[in-house]
């Protein structure tokens, strides 16, 4: 049984269908890029994975658990904006990744000291140790997103959801963020879903690229049908996964 399984999911707002018959199985540790035109249900699909919305029909389950009805610590999320808490310092934001789950949302005494030390380790890892006591508003966009990713991972989610996380960044910063994300992923072997507008980014980072589109189209009523996954590309090895196979064929090596 696969790690994340989406079975026969439909979602409609009122009478307007957004998603139709979405089925996908994802293994643990896979990086899934989700692409598609605007208004094709990518973000809706992510909200369903996040359990911010519940599907009209069908189920989404993680590791065989019953479908969630609200966002929970199984899922970590980074949005394009507003993903960090502006009223907490950088270090407090990282600590919040662990402490918000406590009854009062804080650690006390010894636990507080330990959480602080762990947060400093994380900050050193994500390269924000020098700004630990500043507030997020003073950081650049790339640093804010690094903080948001670090904060999400601190809570140790089963899957990480990224909603156009690098959409607001300049191209150079975006490339740095790609390296950063790939390093973190190599360390944690996290299952990731990333919605993106950037096809190159999708193929570069993803193991699989899911394309959302409307399989049926009524020219007189464009909203009559919803979207579904129309393509499921294998994007490993830069989108040429079988290259490796040909190189590893059993050609007898001359002695």
């Amino acid at each position: 049984m696969s790690f994340v399984s989406v079975r026969d999911v439909f979602q409609s707002y009122g009478r307007r269908p957004i998603l139709e018959r979405v089925n996908v199985e994802v293994d643990e540790g896979e990086f899934i890029s989700i692409v598609g035109a605007s208004g094709c249900g990518k973000s809706t699909f992510l909200r369903l994975l996040l359990a911010q919305e519940t599907p009209t029909r069908g189920t989404i389950s993680i590791d065989g658990n019953p479908p969630a009805v609200e966002p929970n610590p199984e899922r970590g999320v980074v949005f394009q904006r507003y993903s960090v808490f502006p009223h907490m310092t950088i270090r407090q934001n990282i600590i919040a990744g662990e402490s918000l789950g406590q009854p009062l949302g804080r650690f006390f005494g010894k636990a507080r000291k330990e959480a602080r030390d762990r947060a400093d380790t994380v900050l050193a890892r994500i390269g924000l140790a020098h700004v630990a006591d500043q507030y997020p508003a003073t950081l650049s966009g790339g640093m804010q997103q690094r903080l948001a990713i670090g904060q999400a991972l601190t809570a140790k989610p089963r899957i990480l959801l990224l909603d156009e996380p690098f959409g607001a960044l300049d191209p150079g910063t975006r490339l740095q963020m790609h390296d950063f994300l790939m390093e973190l992923r190599a360390e944690t072997n996290m299952t990731v879903f990333m919605v993106t507008h950037d096809l190159t980014e999708g193929f570069k980072l993803g193991d699989r690229v899911l394309v959302f589109d409307k399989p049926r189209w009524d020219p007189t009523d464009p909203e009559a049908f919803g979207a579904t996954i129309t393509y499921d590309f294998d994007a490993r090895d830069g989108g040429i996964p079988f290259q490796r196979l040909t190189e590893e064929t059993h050609v007898p090596i001359p002695a």
Binding site: L50, Q52, E70, P71, N72, P73, R75, G76, V77, F79, Y82, S83, V84, F85, A96, G97, E98, L100, G101, P103, G105, A148, Q151, A152, A155, P157
Partner: peptide, 9 residues
């Protein structure tokens, strides 16, 4: 939503 995913009540 972010706070919810961090386990906040």
């Amino acid at each position: 939503v972010k706070a919810e995913t961090l386990g906040a009540s």
